[in-house]
Design a protein around this nucleic acid. Structure first.
Lengths: 415, 415
DNA sequence: TCCTATTTTTTCGAGCCTCGAAAAAATACT
DNA sequence: AGTATTTTTTCGAGGCTCGAAAAAATAGGA
């Protein structure tokens, strides 16, 4: 079960702590690190001196901000961009993108590609992913030695070990062990992550003030996804990648959902559901495979114009999301929410009914104080989350390795 | 934020680890502890020698089990019952109980008392609690010096710091800071816990095999409560004591709930709801204050006898619980469930509809494999949970104190 | 009964790690 | 140029865990 702390672990953990303090703060001085970690100046001095010698950190003179103070000026520590690199691969509907990110978190190269994911064969899909990664790795500008990790995000359900996609709405294929495939192909540790979880990770890095310990990222897209952070940690359910907010039951026996069941939140709030309601089709009508963003924008525009079926469709979406959030809040208490994805641009149409619904639930007691952010563009968020997740792995598993891990088994993912 | 590991913490943590290994295993030998903690024999030897000298642990010769082995026989280590004592106070509807528990977890004294909690004044309620604790502390058989912690459990909502009851169905009073009151009165650190959470804690100790890392304890009583353990830790929401499963929305705008809202799970599955449906009253009828266990037994008996409104009432309860669990499972993935409380004795009437409902949800995909345990008697569970929680505090905060804590502020609760 | 094999527990020195205090370094102010 | 101030490094002390070896305690066999 719980394991004691060995003496070697001590240095390891404190190294990891220093690295993560630098990653969070950007250019902290040794004194600042000592303050945030609670360790003594001597310890920080020793550890950072090691890390600099190993090329993981670098001193960056220009602290510039407070150089008006008396005394010896602080020396900023920063991540050495060349210490390592990671690849962030995002596979979404009809779209594949890869980015090379340096150790400091800057994108140094990227490539994007349109594919027809819904009709591609299994081998073609895998082949495209492998090929795009290979092209980046073969880039002569890139020091391949330094690529330490590949993180791949996909919409859908992943297994609990972050190895495989189990099911995804973007392809009829199931059970593709992308992480294992890439790892075997390139000999670089890889992980497979759920896109909404990566959105949540990214939000935490982007705005740690607002998205600190507990918050919710909801993807409003063809389907409804969620990334949930509780107590500062990504919550991924106990078996799968969890957090299937879109498939909480809104109305038992209600509208037909893409998953084949009835009454899920998604069956009212997913793009296909809004589209179906806007056209006044039956709730039992088979969900369509895809609705273009342009078409959704047209629906939203018409909903804003006249009080017709389009507006009612958005109202129903808001109601479903509101009751779903209300039930969620009953379990975890209210937390900040980020609405991400194309339909977040129509949040003005969704919000009134959402707030009205949430106010009728136990979790929504203080529904006025619950705040919603919107971010229509999910792709950069997902990529950013992938990158940070991969970099965290490098921070902890490679640059602050335990004794056993130093022997080095590829593919242990604990990040 | 995250704090580095100071050198002093090392011993502290490993001490705590040894104590907790002994509490879990009962009578482990030093060798067994070394194996489970991963620490070296020398370290375990040093730490346990300290703990024995301090009177926290004791050697208990009779290992008896494997004395047929060659070699030096193992010496079992056990908790010294006299090392400390804790008080577990359980306040429930019309009932107040207190138990004194020794450090090894055995009940050494107890007292129970009937009160009319629904009509008592605030002062009377507080007075009774203080008085019953005082009587136990004044027991001449008890070494008062050794009482290290009081844990008080109550049905209802507690604040996130485990200090106060915010709201409870057993009394019209609100916002009673029981923990602070007892702490001030007796100078002993106290905590205030939610009853369902304590049930979950107790289940984990009772059957660690079944209730390990993720499981759900549901209290089927006048209201519906839940204790949720995720990743081996009690999940208590972000603000309040969380986990208001009973107030997830089952049917938007549906039956009137005791909380004043509509369509909560409890409004279909709480005793008052079953009673209301069994009498074929309107779903809008005001919930009654209390239904006796005897009356519920009569309802259940009649439901088993004939297919009338009683059976239908239990069916509706099962349906509500099933859809609620389904939504919960969509978020956290399926986990073992324990049904606790008087109505768990009628689980045979609830289960069919529950399973049917859960099978219609995303979380219930493998609904056949979800297993339910029943435990009609919640009181012993709650008390046991209180005791273990208080003892864990003693283990960690008193017998493995950090340097700062050794200066000793009363009332920091981290257990 | 005594000796040997076996297993558990303790002892002891080595090696790290963190800490506090003091020294050194680097700047602003006068 | 000297002083005050702040940051960073240095250095010895004290603790902790570890591995190896010794000590302790038993069962089995001659």
């Amino acid at each position: 079960m719980s394991v004691g702390i060995r003496h070697d672990d001590l240095r390891r953990r404190n190294r990891a702590m220093v690295i993560s303090a630098v990653r969070r703060a950007g250019q902290p001085s040794r004194t600042e690190i000592a303050a945030t970690t609670g360790l003594s100046h001597s310890t920080i001095s020793a550890i950072s001196s090691d890390l600099i010698q190993e090329g993981i950190l670098a001193e960056s003179k220009a602290s510039e901000t407070v150089s008006m103070k008396r005394g010896r000026p602080q020396v900023g520590l920063s991540l050495n961009p060349q210490a390592a690199a990671v690849l962030a691969v995002v596979l979404s509907l009809n779209f594949l993108s890869v980015a090379v990110i340096d150790y400091a978190g800057q994108v140094v190269a990227e490539e994007q590609r349109r594919l027809d994911t819904l009709t591609m064969s299994r081998d073609a899909l895998i082949g495209e992913c492998v090929a795009i990664v290979r092209r980046r790795l073969e880039d002569p500008d890139l020091d391949v030695q330094s690529v330490a990790r590949i993180a791949l995000a996909i919409q859908g359900i992943t297994d609990s070990h972050a190895r495989a996609m189990l099911w995804s709405p973007i392809t009829p294929q199931t059970n593709i062990a992308f992480a294992d495939i890439l790892e075997r192909e390139f000999g670089i540790p890889a992980i497979m992550e759920n896109d909404c979880n990566m959105m949540a990770v990214a939000l935490r890095w982007r705005d740690p003030h607002r998205y600190r310990d507990d918050f919710i990222a909801i993807l409003l897209s063809h389907g409804i996804g969620m990334g949930l952070v509780l107590k500062g940690e990504l919550f991924t359910g106990t078996h799968s990648s969890g957090g299937e907010f879109g498939h909480m039951i809104h109305r038992p026996g209600g509208a037909l959902c893409r998953c084949g069941r009835r009454g899920c939140v998604e069956a009212y709030a997913g793009n296909y559901a809004i589209w179906r309601n806007a056209r006044q089709m039956s709730e039992n009508a088979e969900p369509v495979a895809d609705v273009s963003d342009a078409e959704m924008r047209t629906l939203a525009a018409r909903a804003r114009e006249t009080d017709g079926p389009e507006r009612e469709a958005y109202r129903k979406a808001g109601e479903a999301l509101g009751f779903g959030l209300g039930s969620l809040f009953a379990l975890i208490d209210p937390a900040p929410v980020a609405m991400v994805g194309a339909s977040a641009a129509a949040f003005d149409l969704i919000e009134p009914a959402l707030r009205e619904a949430i106010a009728q639930t136990a979790g929504g007691q203080h529904s006025g104080s619950i705040s919603f952010d919107t971010e229509p563009n999910e792709l950069p968020l997902i990529r950013e989350g992938c990158a940070m997740r991969a970099l965290s792995f490098v921070d902890q598993e490679i640059f602050a390795p335990s004794i056993q891990a130093r022997a080095g088994s590829v593919g242990k993912n604990v990040a």
